[in-house]
C-alpha cells in the first residue's frame, strides 16, 4: 500500500469571474521513504499540490488516501490532528516565532500535542542535536543565521517523528553553500526512513531527488512513468 495516494485530484480557484484550475485530475502514488521533487514554473500548481499533500487545503474533487485512510472527508480538527502527528513542514521563509527561543520553537508541536514538559525537553534536545544546533537552544531566531534558522525549522518538523516531510523551497532564502547543508540534512533524514517531498524550481535540487513530478498548468507528469 502506498503511503500517499492521490486519485483524480482537482482543485479550482475563483479569481474574479474566471475559474482557475490549479490542479486538474492529478493522480499519483508515493511510497513510504521516497524522495520526491515537485517541480515546475511558478503558477504551475506545485504549491497547491504541497498544500493539499499537507492537508492545509482540500480538493474540489478526487480522493486523497494517507496511509490508507481517506483524508478528504475529515473535519478540520481531525485534519489538525493528522498534521500534528504525521506531517512535518519546512518553509522557504522558515516561519519561526520570533519571540520564542530555538528550543521553544522546536517544542511547539509537542506543546500542541499536550506532551508534558520534561519529556518535551528531552525530545527537543535530541532534535537539536540531530540538526547540530544543541548549543543554540536558548537563542532567538534573530540571533541565528539563515541556515541555522532553517535547521531549527527542520528540527521542529521532525520532532513529532512524522511520516513525511513537506519542504516548500527549503533553500530558496539561503546562499548556495548553506542551501547545500540544509539539503544534505533533509536527505540524511530521508535516508533514515522519512518520506521527503520537496517543492523547488531549482533544477540542481530537483535532480538530486529520486523521483520528479513535473507540474505544468495544473497537470502533472511523473519522471518514474516516463523512465
Amino acid at each position: 500500500m502506498p503511503q500517499i495516494e492521490l486519485e483524480n485530484i482537482t482543485r479550482t480557484f475563483q479569481l474574479g469571474d474566471t475559474t482557475v484550475r490549479a490542479l486538474s485530475s492529478v493522480s499519483v502514488a508515493i511510497n513510504a521513504g521516497e524522495y520526491v521533487a515537485i517541480m515546475g514554473p511558478s503558477g504551475s500548481g506545485k504549491s497547491t499540490m504541497l498544500n493539499l499533500l499537507g492537508l492545509l487545503d482540500q480538493p474540489n474533487n478526487g480522493h486523497y488516501r494517507l496511509e490508507g485512510r481517506d483524508v478528504t472527508t475529515l473535519t478540520s480538527d481531525e485534519l489538525a490532528a493528522v498534521r500534528r502527528t504525521r506531517i512535518g513542514f519546512v518553509f522557504q521563509s522558515f516561519h519561526l516565532i520570533p519571540r520564542l527561543t530555538s528550543a521553544e520553537n522546536v517544542a511547539m508541536p509537542l506543546m500542541l500535542a499536550g506532551v508534558p514538559p520534561e519529556i518535551r525537553r528531552q525530545r527537543v534536545n535530541a532534535a537539536l542535536e540531530k540538526v547540530g544546533l544543541a548549543n543554540r537552544a536558548g537563542h532567538r531566531p534573530d540571533e541565528l543565521s539563515g541556515g541555522q534558522r532553517q535547521r531549527i525549522a527542520i528540527a521542529r518538523a521532525i520532532i513529532m517523528e512524522p511520516a513525511m516531510l513537506l519542504a516548500d523551497e527549503p533553500t530558496g532564502n539561503l546562499d548556495r553553500h548553506t542551501g547545500q547543508e540544509v539539503t544534505e540534512l533533509l536527505e540524511a533524514l530521508n535516508a533514515a526512513g522519512t518520506t521527503l517531498i520537496v517543492v523547488t524550481h531549482d533544477p540542481d535540487m530537483g535532480f538530486r531527488a529520486h523521483r520528479r513530478l513535473m507540474m505544468e498548468d495544473g497537470v502533472m507528469s511523473d519522471s518514474q512513468e516516463q523512465a
Binding site: 499537507g54 492545509l56 480538527d77 489538525a80 490532528a81 500534528r84 516561519h95 516565532i97 508541536p109 500542541l112
Partner: peptide, 16 residues
C-alpha cells in the same frame, strides 16, 4: 496572521 497559519500547519486545532 503568518504565526496563526504556522500554528495550524503544526496541528493546532481551532479550539487551541
Amino acid at each position: 496572521t503568518a504565526e496563526i497559519g504556522l500554528l495550524k500547519a503544526l496541528g493546532a486545532s481551532n479550539r487551541d
